[in-house]
């Protein structure tokens, strides 16, 4: 009776999760299917398949430019966010200092903030201080939102770090720099890595902040939005699909690297 109703609940939850996973992937599948259609406008069921839009898209200068801009932005964001987020996480979770609780709440505010409003506020601010919209400005805008997230991600690793390891290293004769290089940094490395991965992917997919701040340097997502709301071209599904492949590839490579690291550690057993 009890176990039977429990089994029912369990199956229901599994089915429900399956439905949600499907729900998540239906539109992504839609984009990928349509990118292989031959006709200029998408019709389903697709009658003839072709990769001609891929050929065309991959040969276009535009594609290259869009991706290079997106890549520059995401790369810079990841790098800067990890460095600042690392120190932020130490203040967040490692040191016991007066003002820490206040700092924790303060630093989170940009996450809990409508991004469109944030983008616009940054645009006004840039205008006011005389910074022209460009991909560098977009990096700054992304950082405002992404640094708090990276700080949180790294903090989770810092919480699990036994501080007495640093003291032990110090007691064993290491100086401050050696303690940092030999103990703190390697112990927190997985957190820094996932922080960088998060930063890169969130920046790569961001639209509301880029649209206000990047000016003439269009990123992939901005271009898609502009073309979708006005002036359809058959390259939309293709570029969309390419960006899906890119995200999944980066996520997958990151996941594999993490697993490889864990394997290497396990090999020492």
């Amino acid at each position: 009776m009890e176990s039977r109703s429990k089994r029912w609940t369990k199956s229901l939850i599994i089915v429900w999760t399956g439905v949600i996973v499907l729900f998540f992937f239906v539109p992504i599948a839609g984009v990928i299917i349509s990118s292989f259609g031959k006709s200029r406008y998408f019709r389903f069921p697709v009658r003839s398949w072709s990769t001609k839009w891929y050929d065309q898209t991959l040969n276009a200068n535009l594609t290259e430019n869009l991706h290079i801009t997106s890549f520059y932005v995401a790369g810079c964001v990841a790098l800067i966010a990890v460095v600042l987020g690392f120190f932020g996480a130490l203040a967040f979770a490692r040191y016991d200092w007066k003002g820490r609780i206040f700092y924790q709440r303060l630093i989170m505010l940009p996450i809990f903030f409508p991004q469109a409003v944030l983008g616009l506020a940054l645009l006004l601010w840039f205008t006011y201080v005389g910074v022209l919209p460009s991909w560098e400005a977009a990096v700054f805008a992304h950082l405002v939102w992404i640094i708090p997230i990276v700080t949180l991600v790294i903090s989770i690793q810092v919480y699990g770090f036994d501080v007495s390891q640093e003291e032990a290293a110090f007691d064993l004769g290491a100086n401050r720099l050696q303690v940092f290089r030999e103990v703190t940094l390697p112990a927190l490395a997985p957190g820094l890595f996932s922080g960088a991965l998060f930063a890169f992917l969130l920046s790569w997919g961001n639209f509301p902040l880029s649209t206000y701040t990047s000016g003439a340097d269009s990123t992939v997502t901005e271009w898609l939005y502009t073309k979708m709301s006005s002036g359809y071209t058959p390259m939309i599904p293709t570029i969309g699909a390419l960006s899906v492949y890119g995200s999944i590839a980066i996520l997958f490579i990151g996941y594999l690297l993490l697993i490889a690291r864990r394997r290497r550690n396990e090999k020492r057993a």
Binding site: D162, S164, Q165, E167, A168, D171, A174, V183
Partner: peptide, 16 residues
């Protein structure tokens, strides 16, 4: 501590 000829075994052991 890093300049003293003494060494400590910590409560948590603090192994790396």
């Amino acid at each position: 501590a890093n300049k003293r000829p003494t060494c400590m075994v910590f409560q948590s052991l603090a192994l790396f």
